[in-house]
């Protein structure tokens, strides 16, 4: 079973994403900020990371830059999932190593479409 780390400081968003991704047969790990997500990745690198941008302690973009420099951190497919829905943020995410980008609000169709595009379902 492929694994997906859901990183978001909103419990509700994590719960909604978890429901959709469990239906898509992912094993789910959750983190509520970038620092906790890094700790989780060091313990076990997930196959996919669904990543919020604005979070306390460490934000999504700093997490991604640190992840990509870490050993094995090139491997996970990273899909941003954020309310930052302008071109400047999207470009910044891509240059930091994001594979895809979801603009909130999202629904099942968008999650499925994006996960399919990056080849993880």
């Amino acid at each position: 079973m492929p694994s997906c780390l859901i990183v978001d400081d909103s419990k509700v968003v994590r719960m909604v994403a978890r429901r959709i991704l469990e239906d898509l047969k992912f094993g789910i790990v959750e983190a509520e900020d970038g620092k906790s997500a890094l700790d989780s990745c060091l313990e076990e690198m997930p196959d996919v990371i669904l990543l919020d941008w604005n979070m306390p302690v460490m934000n999504g973009i700093d997490f991604l830059r640190t992840l990509r420099k870490s050993q094995g951190g090139e491997d996970p497919v990273v899909i941003f999932c954020t309310t930052e829905n302008d071109m400047a943020h999207i470009r910044e995410a891509i240059s930091a190593g994001a594979n895809e980008y979801i603009m909130k609000p999202f629904d099942r169709a968008i999650i499925e479409a994006k996960f399919s595009q990056v080849g993880v379902i």
Binding site: D86, M87, I90, A98, Y101, I102, I110
Partner: peptide, 20 residues
């Protein structure tokens, strides 16, 4: 719409060929 561009369009192509 934001919904329409997120269904099937790879983000790299969106950045390259779309304006907000």
């Amino acid at each position: 719409s934001q919904f329409e561009v997120q269904r099937g369009l790879p983000i790299q192509l969106m950045v390259k060929y779309f304006q907000q």
